[in-house]
C-alpha cells in the first residue's frame, strides 16, 4: 500500500472563535492550531465540542473570529470544506428503510461522486469497515456496532482529507468498541486520512490520537501532543504489598529491580512483561501478597482533569 499522502495545510486553525446561543457562550474565543494527523477533542458535556465541530463543517455560523479547515475559510468556503471532509455524527442518523450500500452510494453522490464512482467507492469503504457481506441488508436490521460502521463508511466514501468523528464508540459493546478504535487509529496511520475525534472517553482519545484539544465552557484549556501535555516521559509502576516490605524489596533487588519504599507503597521503573514477572516472583519469594499494581505518574487523565479544574 502506498504511504499516506503528505498534508499541505494545517487541519484546523481557529483564532478567537465565538459562538453564542442566546445568553450561552458555546465557544468563547477558541484559539487553536492543530497540524497532527489525529486530534482528540475532549471536554465534558456542554464544553463546546459539538458546536466547534458544527462550526468546522459550516453547519453553524460563528459570531466572530477566524476558522480555517484544511486552509479554507470554514464560513465563506463552507461548501468546499464539506466537500473535503467527512462527518460521522454521534446520534442516530441512518435511514432504516435503505440498504447500507444504497445509502453510502447516495451520500457519495451528494458529495459529488458520479454514480459509477460512488458505487465503487461505497463497495470499497464498506469492505474497509467490515460490512462487505452485509452491504445489501436494510440498515434497520443492523446492530448498533454495524450502524456505527455504516456511519463511518459514509464519512469516508468521497476520500476525504479529514474525517470528523463524534463519539464513534457510543453505544458499542466492549468488542465493538475495540474494533472501532482499531479502525479509527488506522485511518490516520495507514490510510492517510486526518482524524478529528470528539469523545469524553479519555482512553479512546489516548489510543487513537496523536494530540488533544481540551475544551471547558467554550474555552480551550489545554492542547498539544499527548506525549507532551503532562504525561510523564518515563512511566512508573506503583506496587503495594501486605507483609514484609523489606524482604520484598530485597527480592526485587536480587532480580535487578530497584524500588524505593514510600508512604503509599513502592515506585518502580515501568518495564516490560519480564518486570511484571519479576514482581510476581519476588512477591512469592518474600511471602507477601500484592495489594495493588498499577501505573504511577501523571497520565493523560490527570492532565485533562487538572486542566479542567
Amino acid at each position: 500500500m502506498a504511504a499516506p499522502p503528505a498534508h499541505d495545510a494545517a487541519a484546523i486553525v481557529a483564532d478567537g472563535v465565538v459562538k453564542t446561543y442566546g445568553s450561552v457562550r458555546a465557544l468563547d474565543g477558541v484559539t487553536v492550531a492543530s497540524d497532527e494527523n489525529a486530534v482528540g477533542l475532549l471536554g465534558a458535556n456542554g464544553a463546546g465540542k459539538s458546536t466547534l465541530m458544527k462550526a468546522l463543517l459550516g453547519l453553524v455560523r460563528t459570531d466572530s473570529g477566524r476558522l480555517n479547515v484544511l486552509g479554507i475559510d470554514a464560513v465563506r468556503g463552507a461548501a468546499e470544506v464539506r466537500h473535503r471532509i467527512g462527518y460521522m455524527p454521534e446520534h442516530e442518523c441512518l435511514p432504516r428503510d435503505m440498504a447500507a450500500s444504497d445509502f453510502v452510494v447516495q451520500l457519495g453522490m451528494l458529495r459529488g461522486l458520479p454514480h459509477r464512482g460512488a458505487v465503487l467507492r461505497a463497495n470499497e469503504v464498506l469492505f474497509q469497515v467490515g460490512l462487505e457481506e452485509e452491504r445489501s441488508r436494510l440498515i434497520g436490521t443492523f446492530s448498533t456496532g454495524m450502524r456505527q460502521r455504516v456511519k463511518l463508511a459514509q464519512a469516508l466514501v468521497h476520500s476525504p482529507e479529514l474525517v470528523v468523528l463524534d463519539e464513534p464508540t457510543n453505544g458499542l459493546d466492549p468488542a465493538g468498541r475495540e474494533e472501532m478504535l482499531v479502525l479509527v487509529r488506522r485511518l490516520s496511520t495507514d490510510l492517510g486520512i486526518r482524524v478529528l475525534l470528539s469523545s469524553h472517553v479519555l482512553e479512546d482519545v489516548e489510543r487513537t490520537c496523536d494530540a488533544v484539544i481540551v475544551l471547558r465552557e467554550g474555552k480551550v484549556v489545554t492542547e498539544g501532543r499527548i506525549d507532551a501535555i503532562g504525561v510523564d516521559a518515563v512511566a512508573r509502576l506503583r506496587v503495594r504489598v501486605r507483609g514484609d516490605v523489606h524482604a520484598f524489596v530485597a527480592a526485587l533487588a536480587a532480580r535487578g529491580i530497584s524500588a524505593t519504599p514510600g508512604e503509599d507503597g513502592l515506585d518502580l521503573d515501568d518495564g516490560d512483561d519480564a518486570t511484571l514477572d519479576a514482581i510476581r516472583d519476588a512477591a512469592g519469594e518474600a511471602g507477601v501478597s500484592l495489594r495493588e499494581l498499577r501505573r504511577a505518574g501523571r497520565t493523560l487523565e490527570d492532565a485533562v482533569i487538572g486542566a479542567m479544574q
Binding site: 458529495r111 461522486l113 458520479p114 467507492r121 469492505f127 469497515v129 467490515g130 468521497h158 472501532m180 490510510l191
Partner: peptide, 16 residues
C-alpha cells in the same frame, strides 16, 4: 471489522 490493507484507493476523479 479490521481495516484491511487492500482495496482502498482514493477517488481521484473530478467531483460533479
Amino acid at each position: 471489522a479490521r481495516v484491511e490493507d487492500v482495496r482502498y484507493s482514493r477517488y481521484e476523479g473530478e467531483l460533479r
